[in-house]
Simulated assay, not measured.
Amino acid sequence: MNTAVTTPLSPGTHTVNLERVAQRYHVAGTGPVCLAHPGGPGLSWEYLRMPAAEEHLTMVYVEPIGTGASGRLPAHPHGYTRERYAQALDGLIRHLGVARVHLLGHSHGGFVAQHYALTRPDRLAGVVLYDSAPVTGPEHFAEAARNMEVFARRNAGRPGLRDVLDAWESLGGLADDEAVTLAARGLLPAYLADYWDHQEEYASLFSVTGTYISGLDDRLVPDAIDDRAMLGSFAVPALVIAGRHDVICGPRWAGELADGIPHAELVLLENSGHLGHVEEPDTFARAVTAFVAGSARDHS
C-alpha cells in the first residue's frame, strides 16, 4: 500500500504551531516559493487567490494569526503589530525549509511585507508590495477620502452607491467580526475599477469574511506606520504594483514606494482598482512571475 508523503509545501491546507499559536496556510501551484500575505488586517485569505500566478509559482497563502482558522493571541483583538506578524512569518518560513522566499503583501499585508524586508532582508529573495503605502494615519486617510469622492462622482446614479458610501463611513466604528465582514463586502464596488458593468464576474468576491483586529498593540497603543525615512535602506529586490484606480493605496503611494526604494520596479495596472489580481489577472501574474524569475536568478 502506497502512502502519500506530505511535506510543508505539499498542495493543500496546512497548520503549524508557532509559539503556541496555530498558523494556517494554503499551498497551490509549482515553481519558486512566494508567500502571499492578505490585507485588512483581518480579511480571509481566499480573496487573494491567484490561479494565473500558480501556473508558474508555488503560492503559499498565509492565513495570518488572529484571522480565519489561525490561532488568536492572548490579547485578541489587540497585539497584532507588524512585528508580531513578522515573527509568525519567521516561524512559517523556517517550517517551509526554504532558504529565501519571495514575499507578496497586499494592502495591509504590504505594510507587513515592507517591515519584514526592512528588518529581515537575509530571509527574502524579493518582495512584492501590492497596493501598499509607506505611511498610514491622517495623511493616508485624507488621500483615500479624496479618492472616494472621485469614485462617488464618477459613479453617481449607480444602484448601490449609497451602500458603498455607508460602508466607507462605518470604518471608524468597527468593533466585531460581523461589522468587519459587512464593511468589507460593502466596500468591494469601490475596490474595483469597473464593478457595475462586471457584477457577475466579481460575485464570488462577496464571500470574503473579516475578523476584527484593533490595530493596537497589547498595551493598547496604535501600531503607527511611516516607513518613508527607511525606504532608502531597502536591501531586497522590490516590485511595486498598484491599480490606477485604487482608492486606498493607489498610484501616489506606489510612486512614493518606488521612488524611495533603490532599484524598485513599478507596475501600474491601468484597468484595475485595489484588486488587480482579479481585474487583470494575466497582466498581474506576468509582472509577478517575471520579477520572481529575475530576483531568483540573482540569488542562485
Rank of each mutant, 00 (worst) to 15 (best):
M1T: 12
S10D: 05
T13W: 07
H14Q: 11
L18Y: 13
E19A: 13
E19H: 13
Q23K: 04
T30D: 02
P32N: 08
V33I: 08
A36I: 15
P38L: 12
E46Y: 03
H56G: 05
T58A: 08
E63P: 03
G66W: 01
T67Q: 03
P74H: 09
A75Q: 14
H76R: 11
Y85K: 10
Y85R: 14
Q87S: 15
L89V: 04
D90E: 05
V98A: 01
A99S: 15
A99N: 06
R100F: 10
R100A: 05
V101K: 09
G105V: 10
G109S: 00
F111R: 14
V112W: 01
R120T: 12
R123F: 00
S132N: 09
V135S: 09
P138W: 01
E139N: 07
E139A: 13
A144M: 13
N147M: 02
E149I: 08
V150S: 10
A152K: 14
A152L: 09
N155D: 04
A156N: 06
D166H: 15
A167G: 12
G172V: 03
G173H: 11
V180P: 00
V180N: 07
L182S: 11
A184R: 08
L187S: 03
P189R: 02
A190L: 10
Y195I: 05
H198L: 02
Q199E: 12
Q199A: 12
L205F: 03
S207T: 12
S207N: 07
G210L: 00
G210A: 03
T211G: 02
D217F: 02
A224Q: 09
D226V: 06
A229Q: 10
A229E: 10
M230K: 14
S233T: 14
L239E: 01
I241F: 01
I241D: 00
H245P: 00
V247F: 01
W253T: 06
L257T: 02
A258C: 01
D259T: 02
L266E: 07
L268I: 15
L268E: 14
L269D: 08
H274M: 10
V278M: 05
E279T: 01
P281K: 09
P281L: 09
D282R: 12
F284Y: 06
A287Y: 08
T289E: 14
R297H: 15
